[in-house]
């Protein structure tokens, strides 16, 4: 039986209810994230929880970590400032698909390239929920939304391929149905020195379902279960067989130099220059 530890991590003075709709996947992802931190034995004092704007970005207000609910798309540069200013902190970011990949897309690829020790959980529900169901950069071609009444023209980003290509040290994907796998990925991401991206594929039974008739929360979770295949299984499938599948697992597990560690090396060089300066 799983021990329920979430209550130890909720903010004592925050009045609930939260903003999430019944059947939303955001609470599942938050629980996985809290359990990952708990299992790593981290003190709440050393964690900073950062987000941008959107449904999932409301999460930091609910947990008893110090937190920053930022501006749309900019969660990663906020987090970068915090981490570089104090590299001892464990910085975890929640960012939705629109937040991370559309308005924050540039920050996303550059955070991967910079490889700073931050863990970002991209909560991907394929739609802009908070603003009323507009097409997001991960919405499948042909799907419907408030700004895609004739079906979405755009092709969706593959979050994991993008992150791995841009140089993140750790990249993984799990669905909200695969709770323990999700928890494990977030844990590995936090443990990994360098930039970690965990894509959590979640249901939006309010708006995605409203426009695309995908049923209620439980129906959508079941669908995620059915669509999920491991990377090993995916390797045996044809492109046609993979069409509607969600490939889950680890896509990158590298050990490129982490940014703050690189900065510490640079400081040694600078200190030698300072001695020259002071001898003037």
């Amino acid at each position: 039986m799983m021990e329920n530890i979430i209550h130890d991590y909720l903010r004592p003075k925050k009045s609930f209810p939260h903003v999430w709709c019944p059947g939303c996947g955001d609470g599942i992802v938050l629980n996985a994230m809290v359990r990952a931190i708990h299992s790593l034995g981290k003190s709440k004092d050393e964690v900073v929880f950062v987000s941008g704007i959107g449904c999932s970005s409301r999460a930091p207000a609910y947990t008893d970590f110090s937190s920053l609910h930022g501006i749309h798309g900019r969660a990663l540069p906020f987090a970068t400032g915090i981490k570089l200013a104090n590299p001892k902190l464990t910085v975890v970011v929640f960012s939705g698909d629109g937040d991370a990949l559309a308005i924050g897309g540039n920050h996303f690829i550059h955070a991967c390239r910079r490889n700073i020790d931050i863990t970002v959980v991209v909560i991907n529900n394929n739609i802009y929920g908070m603003t009323g169901g507009q097409a997001s950069p991960t919405m499948p071609t042909g799907a419907y939304g408030a700004t895609a009444p004739y079906g979405n023209l755009d092709r969706p980003f593959d979050v994991c391929k993008l992150a791995a290509a841009a140089g993140a040290n750790y990249v993984a994907r799990a669905t909200a149905f695969q709770f323990f796998q999700l928890e494990k990925c977030i844990k590995e991401g936090i443990e990994k020195k360098g930039f970690s991206v965990i894509e959590a594929v979640t249901p939006c039974p309010s708006l995605y379902s409203f426009f695309n008739n995908t049923g209620r929360g439980v129906d959508m979770l079941k669908k995620l279960r059915d669509r999920a295949v491991t990377t090993q299984k995916a390797a045996t499938l044809s492109p046609a067989e993979l069409e509607d599948k969600i490939v889950t697992g680890v896509f990158a597990n590298e050990n490129f130099r982490e940014y703050c560690a690189g900065y510490a090396e640079l400081v040694e060089k600078a200190e030698r220059s300072k001695k020259n300066e002071e001898s003037l």
């Binding site: 540069p77 970068t80 915090i82 981490k83 104090n86």
Partner: peptide, 11 residues
Amino acid sequence: TAVCGASMAGL
């Protein structure tokens, strides 16, 4: 935004 983050971290 990084400046905001760093200042909140105390610098």
